[in-house]
Write a protein that binds this DNA or RNA. Structure first.
Length: 229
DNA sequence: GCGACAG
DNA sequence: ATCTTGTCGC
């Protein structure tokens, strides 16, 4: 498999990355409701790393939002382009994710990624960054609370509690399964937080993690193994 | 200043 | 993220 190139002007260090965040974060759109849940297409993206070989594999899996069946899959393999720095995850993941999304024949519809959007120290996490670069509606669903503290939601599926920063609700701890640790949802771009939560519940009828992320996670691991083999 | 911190 | 087998439970 061919190894994709990151953009020539991709930031090389933290200072450059912070400057890019400052330049792009004003372009986030948060007053559009976004696509209606349960209809159309929804695409999960995720990446897996092999730091030994300096490789990263990304996957994009398109699902029918109504049936949650797979419509299309694409992968891409690249060099690790940035170290893991909390707050700068996007610079590590996005180049290869863009390549995987670009390899799709059809349109992605709503994109769901691992991580945060608006709920970010600088209000510009992975989901927002990906949204601005592609123009697509994007939401972030994370497995951990990152820097946020939260009140435990009621035990029932669908219960949620706000993630607050500077008196703003930047995200939500959302219970997708009864009695199971919540996931952490935030709007990325061109989607409302309310709508992002409804989408997330729709995508997680059986497990804590949305089907989009589950499919993308297993696919990018497979792609990494094949690239490594 | 120190520690914590999505993946 | 990743290192890693079996095992308890529905």
């Amino acid at each position: 498999m061919r190894i994709i190139d990151k953009p020539a002007d991709w930031p090389a260090d933290e200072a450059a990355a912070l400057a890019v965040q400052d330049e792009l974060r004003g372009q986030v759109v948060l007053d559009e409701p976004g696509p209606p849940p349960g209809t159309g297409l929804v695409t999960g993206v995720d990446v897996a790393y092999d730091d030994e070989r300096d490789l990263v594999a990304a996957a994009a899996v398109v699902l029918d939002a109504r049936t949650l069946t797979v419509v299309e899959e694409a992968t891409a393999v690249g060099r690790v382009s940035f170290p893991y720095v909390p707050g700068l995850l996007a610079f590590r993941e996005i180049p290869t994710v863009l390549a995987a999304l670009g390899a799709l024949r059809g349109e992605p519809g709503l994109v769901v990624c691992d991580g945060y959007g608006r709920a970010h120290p600088r209000r510009f996490g992975l989901a927002s960054h990906l949204g601005v670069l592609t123009g697509l509606p994007v939401i972030g669903v994370a497995k951990n609370p990152f820097t946020f503290s939260y009140e435990r939601p009621a035990p029932g599926r669908g219960a949620s509690t706000p993630l607050v920063a500077d008196d703003e609700e930047v995200g939500r701890a959302l219970r997708t399964q009864e009695g199971v640790k919540p996931v952490f949802v935030s709007a990325g771009h061109r989607v409302t937080l309310d709508n992002a939560c409804v989408h997330t519940l729709h995508l997680a009828p059986r497990y804590r993690i949305p089907e989009t992320t589950r499919r993308a996670d297993s696919l990018c691991r497979r792609a990494l193994k094949e690239a490594t083999a």
